[in-house]
Design a protein around this nucleic acid. Structure first.
Lengths: 144, 144
DNA sequence: GAATGTAGTTGGTGATACCAAGTATATTAC
DNA sequence: GTAATATACTTGGTATCACCAACTACATTC
């Protein structure tokens, strides 16, 4: 229950954001993972990115990724692999176990969030989808 | 850019949540504060809660609050005060500076989030407000 | 081939958050 | 009215996260 800030819209965004974040924290915790590790496994579900690409996805400093991958690797969730193209680059892939955990997490996140917005009307949910899409569109545009 | 998870609605919630969280992190960073400290100052804008009440607000372990308040106190943002009612209880209040910083932060958060949803229609924003309200209503109900 | 740039790691720091264990004060129960 | 129990907060220990600055190794540019 983040305290009230100012306008209803701002307030609603903050509350919704924290509710989602709490849900993610809870689901991640069920697998003894942090939200960052959860996001990492999400990224690796359908990609084998370089360390730098992971840093870009997560908007973290590159030096933060080394430790993140170290810890995930130590738990057998991911593996480092050399790039054949550029000897500087290290690619990160999920292990079979990492993929399995990632799938369970995706499932858990879906259930948690669908329950979170269970009371909302389809029209209201569509509005959220539209807003997220416009954020995404703006982010893509600003990358240019 | 959190990676896609499953349904559009779930995806949208996650993306929106991270966008808000990034905005909060950015604003907090402008004042050299963490998001948790930002939330703390938000809480203290109109309250003088006990340590335990802060833990409840933030959904953190009570032992986490001691350090949080230590750090905020060291920076002159908050002060501990003894309760006259119960000698075990410590009340936390914002200092004048803490209130000032809190006001600036509220301002910064409003601007950042209003800009974030600047492209959205009023109707879509109302939908978010309704969803947040329903979360709040459920939380209040479940506390019973 | 030398200068510059990029990828990743390391070491150091500070903040967060947890748990378990401790002290001090209140409340309850007998 | 005191003994047992509960509550409020702190402390110490641990792990994670995230940053910065400095470093090594490989690529690219000139």
């Amino acid at each position: 229950m983040p305290s009230s800030v100012t306008s209803p819209a701002v307030d609603a965004l903050v509350q919704l954001s924290f509710a989602v974040h709490r849900a993610l924290t809870r689901v991640a915790g069920q697998f003894d993972l942090s939200v960052t590790q959860l996001r990492l496994l999400g990224i690796l579900r359908d990609r084998t990115p370089s360390m730098a690409a992971i840093a870009d996805f997560l908007e973290l400093d590159r030096s933060s990724i080394s430790g993140l991958i170290d810890r995930a690797e130590r738990r057998g969730l991911v593996a480092r692999r050399a790039s054949t193209v550029d000897a500087r680059v290290i690619l990160v892939e999920a292990t079979a176990e990492g993929l399995a955990v990632g799938a369970h997490i995706a499932q858990g996140v879906s259930e948690a969030l669908e329950q979170l917005i269970g009371d909302a009307t389809p029209a209201d949910i569509d509005a959220v989808v539209r807003i997220a899409a416009s954020l995404q569109a703006r982010a893509d545009r600003d990358l240019t």
